[in-house]
Design a protein around this nucleic acid. Sequence first.
DNA 1: GCCAACGTTGGC
DNA 2: GCCAACGTTGGC
Length: 141
Amino acid sequence: MSGATNFWLVKSEPDAWSWDQMVACGAEGTGWTGVRNHLAKKQMQAMAIGDQAFFYHSNVGKEVVGIVEVIKTFHPDPTDESGRFGMVAVRAVKKLPRPVSLEEIKADPFFAEIALVKNSRLSVQPVSPEHWLAICKRGGL
DNA sequence: GCCAACGTTGGC
DNA sequence: GCCAACGTTGGC
């Protein structure tokens, strides 16, 4: 494992779990439960404590609203009865001063290869450092 | 509310 | 192990 921080993007429908709820968990954070996809699982297994992830509101809003940090690495998800999947734990770090919408990301050819556009259904995805910086910049950070 | 994309399941 | 049917996700 290298010491470099990796970047990710996690999606949530705000009706199910919103940024505000995430913030309400404070420094304690919360388990990122409910992921039932093997590719997403693989991404979570690759996460290290201190890695950062964009928090994206799918369906409603369709925008990156904030940044979360991994505080606990991959471990069993108590909500998964099959025992096949797991979760990480994250805490809210900061809200983007300006949310970055999917529309905006799609409109910029720079993001043509980002998983958010290419594989829109993947709920946990990696983000390259270049894309990370560019979205932070657009978000007003 | 619709539909396309994609993952999963189950019959063979 | 293949593939059709089905369910779910998520953008529009």
